[in-house]
């Protein structure tokens, strides 16, 4: 089965959790900017976390499927309609064949994820389906989607197939079927965030005043931010010694300080090495929050120890695992309830 792109939206790309093992060749990790919403969307349709979804930045796409499709929308909150009826977020949806799914511009958040049961099945490149636009590889032809594109969809998992069967019980007169509940796990705020930072190797080179300023005053996401990084405007930070480093490894979540004094928070598509002092690293659990922030959003930093950050990651993963269990129970309970009706 194929998904057809009727309208592409501002920047819609195929993304998964990114590629590992190729950074030594200068290949970025890439992957979904808001990995939490990407994973949530996948789990709602019974996919594994590594299935590819569509990441829609700003104005979303208009999609139509050749056959009935199990989908889920997570992340930002755009107005989404199917045959002029509002489509709810954060739940599995059975979209009927030929119905236009239209995603608008988000009124909350920045990036919406559209998962399709079976995943977007473009050929993996270097172990991932993520699109890396600057070097034109991965995803669909190495680029953002355009109107007229056809995207292959993989086969449903057994869980996906049972979710689909449950939704398929009513007549197919409606443009889509959805359960009456939502299953949100991720927060979706896109206008401000508190981000926790682990000290970086060059942290000690910040002046005393800058060490205070970095947590005392808010920053803004600058207009020239993209999938490679967010430029943080607002307070200027200073180093005790000027001067760049010999290029060293950097990764998504690294906060660098270029000579101008405005930090850059590196994200999914960042280079593998960089020459600016690394003053901190975003706690893993907070990195998806960065992907939700729109241009102009306000960011406050808080220091966190690396041990605490690791504990936060473990807590988050445990809570997501519990959510997944509950979701599966909901599906089987719902199945029981529906069976009783018959």
């Amino acid at each position: 089965m194929n998904a057809h792109v009727v309208r592409a939206g501002l920047l819609t790309t195929v993304q998964d959790l990114g590629r590992t093992g190729n950074q030594r060749w200068g290949v970025p990790v890439g992957g979904a900017m808001d990995a939490a919403s990407h994973r949530l969307a996948n789990r709602l349709v019974g996919n594994g976390d590594r299935c590819a979804t569509l990441e829609c930045t700003g104005l979303g796409p208009v999609l139509v499927f050749e056959r009935d499709a199990l989908i889920a929308l997570t992340g930002a909150r755009p107005a989404v309609t199917a045959a002029h009826r509002a489509v709810p977020m954060d739940r599995p949806i059975l979209l009927r064949a030929g119905v236009h799914l239209a995603c608008g511009a988000p009124w909350f958040g920045f990036r919406t994820y559209v998962a399709v049961g079976g995943g977007i099945d473009v050929p993996p490149v270097l172990g991932s389906r993520s699109t890396y636009v600057p070097a034109s590889f991965g995803g669909h032809e190495g680029r953002a989607l355009r109107a007229g594109d056809a995207l292959p969809v993989g086969p449903l998992s057994p869980l996906g197939a049972s979710i689909r069967r449950l939704l398929d019980r009513s007549s197919n007169a409606n443009p889509f079927e959805a359960p009456p509940w939502s299953a949100a796990h991720a927060e979706t705020r896109g206008d401000r965030a508190t981000i926790r930072l682990i000290r970086g190797p060059e942290w000690h080179r910040l002046t005393a005043g800058s060490t205070e300023r970095i947590t005392a005053e808010p920053f803004w996401i600058g207009p020239d931010s993209n999938r490679m990084g967010c430029r943080l405007l607002g307070p200027r930070l200073e180093l005790v010694d000027r001067g760049e480093l010999i290029s060293q490894p950097v990764c998504p979540g690294t906060v660098q300080l270029p000579p101008g004094g405005s930090p850059i928070l590196l994200t999914s598509d960042c280079a593998t090495t960089g020459g600016y002092p690394r003053i901190g690293f975003v706690a893993r659990v907070d990195l998806p929050r960065v992907g939700r922030l729109r241009l102009g959003a306000s960011v406050r930093f808080q220091w966190i120890s690396v041990e605490e950050a690791r504990a936060e990651t473990r807590r988050w993963e445990a809570s997501f695992a519990r959510w997944t269990c509950c979701y599966r129970e909901k599906i089987s309970g719902w199945r029981c309830a529906t069976d009783d009706d018959e």
Binding site: R24, P249, T313
Partner: peptide, 22 residues
Amino acid sequence: LVEYVPAFTTVGVYFDPETTGA
């Protein structure tokens, strides 16, 4: 071990915290 990234004077070594402790 997830991967390593050699640079001029340093090597970044990435690990999977679910498999090993820091």
